[in-house]
Structures are given as structure tokens and as C-alpha cells.
């Protein structure tokens, strides 16, 4: 075998010939990236730390009145935010019903009837909805229900506003979960002679149930902290509301907002306590969703 030896490479040493500039840049970027990550994590610890410490002391100091009593006037110690907790729960329930109907329905439409000529439009519109700020939704419901005196400032209006914010989240989650179910399952149902609607309701949906519930849970967690839309819809209350309409209703994030503006330190500490409760609920909801997803 002949070897042509006109291609003799210049003798280059193997020891580091990487230019110092490149090496410096490589190490510099490593340092910046680590530093950046630490900077990102810093506020997390600060915020959680403050909420935990100040919230916890406030909750302990006011236990159990914090959860069971209504607010006391400024100057009086004690009292709680029971009406805010109850109000939040009521409005979240209303929101969940609304979001489930439209959201799951929309998700089923996009996943199961994707060939429909309106499917693409619906998907685009649902994406548009995700980007609309919560305060805008609140204003819309204000014009629609409050200003028009149909419900006035009320828990119903607040619940509807929250539900509208949840809709696009639920649509996307439902569509994704349904799409994960293999076509063969639907075909098996159809092959058994089941009509399409039964295949969807009795076979497809139940398999997707945990995913849909997870999506709903995450959406609820997301809106449970929203106060902006409630400023114009449920308005807030220092007492329990005795009706869903024509009667302002309190909510946890709204109450926190009100108390944060207060000059009275005992009300501010109630705000921290409320924050702890709120963050705790959201955190637990997120954990449940995570565990549920991991099990699938």
C-alpha cells in the first residue's frame, strides 16, 4: 500500500493551545451563569422566609381566631379573616364550575373534533385569552354584571371573573391530556359499536380524568391569588355576605391587599398571616398536581 506523503501536517503540540481569550470567556460565562442562578433564587428564599416567619407568628398569635373570627375595627386586637377565607372558597367554587364547563368542553372540542373547520379559530382564541391580563377580565365582568346592576358587586360576579381567567388554562390542559390518549382506545370503543359520544364520555374522559383534575387544580391555584379582578367585581367585605348577588364578598387576596395599606400594625400582621395561608394553599395544590402527574 502506498502512502502519499505530501500531506504532512505541521507539528502542533497537544498541550493547551486554546487561546487565553476563549478560555477566559468560557470560565467567565460559567461564573456568570452560576451567579445569575443564585440571584434568581435569592428572592425566592427571601420572600418565603418573610412570609413564613411573619405569617407564622401572626397566625400563632391569633390562633384560632384568625380562621374563625371576623375582622375587628382598627385599634382592637384580635379578630381574623374568616370571611375572606370563606369568600375565596365560595368564589373559587363558582369559578371552577364555570371553567369546567367551558374549559373541558373546549378541550374536548379541540382534541376530539380537531377536524372541524372552526377548531383552529377556537384554539387561537383560547391562546389569546391566556394572554389577557386578569384586571381586564375584571373590568369586563364589571361592565357586564356590576355596572349593569344585574348582580351588582357580588360573589357571583367575582366567581365568574375568576372562572373566565381559568377557562383558557383548563382548555389547554384538557386538550393536551386528551391528545395523549392513544387513538387505539377510541377505535376499540367504536369497534364495540359504541356511538362516538359514549366513547368520549365513558372511555376517553375517564382515562383522562386525573390529568383534567390536575389541570383544574393548577388553574384554581393560579386564580386563588388573583385580587385585581375582584376589586371591580366582588369588592371585598368585612362581614360575611348573605347572598351571592347584590352583596359584596370578601376574598383572601383582596383582604391582604386592604390590610397592606393599613397604618395599623396588627392589620399588617394579619396581611402576612393571610399571605401564609394563601401561599400554603397554592403550594399544596401544586404538590398534589405534581404527585398526580408523576403517578400517571
Amino acid at each position: 500500500m502506498t502512502v502519499s506523503s505530501n500531506a504532512v501536517p505541521s507539528a502542533r503540540a497537544l498541550s493547551s493551545k486554546l487561546s487565553p481569550a476563549r478560555r477566559l470567556q468560557n470560565n467567565l460565562m460559567l461564573g456568570l451563569i452560576v451567579l445569575g442562578t443564585l440571584v434568581v433564587l435569592l428572592p425566592l428564599f427571601l420572600i418565603f422566609g418573610y412570609v413564613l416567619i411573619r405569617g407564622f407568628t401572626a397566625v400563632i398569635a391569633g390562633f384560632p381566631a384568625f380562621f374563625t373570627q371576623l375582622p375587628k375595627p382598627i385599634g382592637e386586637a384580635g379578630g381574623g379573616i374568616a370571611q375572606a377565607i370563606v369568600g375565596s372558597l365560595i368564589m373559587l367554587a363558582i369559578a371552577t364550575v364555570l371553567a369546567s364547563l367551558i374549559g373541558i368542553g373546549g378541550g374536548i372540542f379541540l382534541a376530539e373534533y380537531a377536524e372541524h373547520r372552526l377548531a383552529n379559530l377556537v384554539r387561537i382564541m383560547s391562546d389569546v385569552l391566556t394572554g389577557i391580563p386578569a384586571i381586564v377580565v375584571g373590568l369586563v365582568v364589571y361592565v357586564m354584571l356590576v355596572q349593569s346592576k344585574i348582580t351588582g358587586y357580588s360573589g357571583l360576579a367575582g366567581g365568574i371573573a375568576l372562572g373566565l381567567i381559568m377557562v383558557p388554562i383548563v382548555v389547554r390542559a384538557t386538550e393536551e391530556v386528551l391528545k395523549l390518549i392513544p387513538t387505539t382506545i377510541r377505535e376499540a370503543g367504536l369497534a364495540l359499536g359504541l356511538p362516538r359520544w359514549k366513547v368520549i364520555l365513558s372511555i376517553v374522559l375517564p382515562s383522562a380524568r386525573s390529568g383534567i383534575v390536575t389541570g383544574l387544580t393548577l388553574a384554581v391555584a393560579r386564580v386563588s391569588g388573583e385580587a385585581a379582578p375582584l376589586i371591580f367585581t366582588s369588592l371585598g367585605n368585612t362581614f360575611y355576605s348573605n347572598s351571592l348577588v347584590q352583596n359584596p364578598m370578601a376574598a383572601l387576596p383582596l383582604q391582604i391587599y386592604e390590610y397592606s395599606k393599613s397604618p395599623a400594625p396588627e392589620q399588617v400582621s394579619l396581611a402576612w398571616a393571610g399571605s401564609l395561608v394563601l401561599v400554603f394553599i397554592i403550594f399544596v395544590a401544586g404538590l398534589i398536581a405534581r404527585i398526580a402527574t408523576r403517578q400517571r
Binding site: 373534533y113 377556537v122 382564541m125 385569552l129 382548555v171 359520544w197
Partner: peptide, 24 residues
């Protein structure tokens, strides 16, 4: 019937977006 119901719910989404503009 089912497909009309589902279509209706999905179309509500379109209606919602439209209503945001109209109401505001």
C-alpha cells in the same frame, strides 16, 4: 346532540373573546 353541545361550549370561547371587546 353531543357534538352540538360540545361545539356550543367551544363557541362560547369565541363569544367570550368578542364580548371582552364589545363590553369594554
Amino acid at each position: 346532540l353531543f357534538s352540538y353541545v360540545i361545539l356550543g361550549l367551544a363557541l362560547l370561547i369565541l363569544l367570550v373573546v368578542l364580548s371582552y371587546f364589545v363590553l369594554l
